[in-house]
Design a protein around this nucleic acid. Structure first.
Length: 208
DNA sequence: TCGATGATTGAG
DNA sequence: TCAATCATCGAA
């Protein structure tokens, strides 16, 4: 019995949602004639928050366009966009009720279900390079624009987010790969304690 | 219509 | 460190 996070979870400040998504699970169901329904999943270990007209780094900064419409619509929907001519990125729409738009970019997963299938989509055997980046995880789970605006609060959706456990430790940093509002610390990474040091999850992205 | 840009990645 | 690669968007 799977339990998804509901709309009330996403109807809160985007940075808080980004932080609390860590430890929950992104689930992709793939329908195929040979294998029926394949379940791919991974624990969310890295996220970033993006706002609206108050956030120059956000796609929603200059207002509503066809691409970013999901950020302005119902919360708890997948916002999937194409970038750099090669890759998709997946977000979940989320914002406090008084905000115009918002989304949380899912940047990395710790793979759990369907690892062999994900390896074939990614054309690699390296488990640590499977879902350790926003473009990698969409490739591993075959997440494309077809899933834009899918309701991730519905367990029957082809893409959903299941309730899990909060990350035991969280590392907070600046967002990656942006050129504006670089000072804001809206990136959240799952971490763990080792010998009184706080280390980042091994499935998080490596670049900065 | 057109040029600039980008919430990235893999190769070198 | 850098090029690949193209949809999107704002300006013309």
């Amino acid at each position: 019995m799977s339990v998804c996070l509901d709309q009330s979870f996403y109807s809160r400040p985007t940075d808080l949602v980004a932080k609390e998504l860590l430890g929950n699970r992104l689930v992709r169901l793939i329908e195929s004639k040979e294998n029926g329904i394949e379940r791919l999943s991974g624990i969310i270990v890295e996220t970033e928050a993006y706002g609206s007209d108050d956030d120059p780094a956000s796609h929603a900064y200059r207002g509503l366009t066809p691409r970013n419409a999901v950020m302005f619509g119902d919360v708890g929907r997948a916002y999937v966009y194409f970038t750099y001519g090669n890759y998709f990125c997946v977000n979940v729409s989320a914002r406090a009720c008084e905000r115009k738009a918002g989304a949380v970019l899912i940047r990395a997963l710790q793979p759990v279900d369907g690892i062999e299938v994900m390896k074939s989509f990614r054309k690699t055997d390296n488990e640590f390079s499977l879902t350790s980046g926003p473009g990698k995880l969409t490739q591993a789970m075959n997440i494309t624009k077809l899933l834009n605006n899918v309701d991730v609060t519905d367990p029957k959706s082809l893409l959903s987010i299941e309730w899990g456990f909060p990350a035991p430790q969280i590392v907070i940093t600046q967002r990656i790969g942006i050129t504006r509002a670089v000072d804001r610390k809206w990136r959240y990474v799952a971490g763990y304690r080792k010998d009184s040091c706080l280390l980042i999850n091994k499935y998080a992205s490596r670049r900065r």
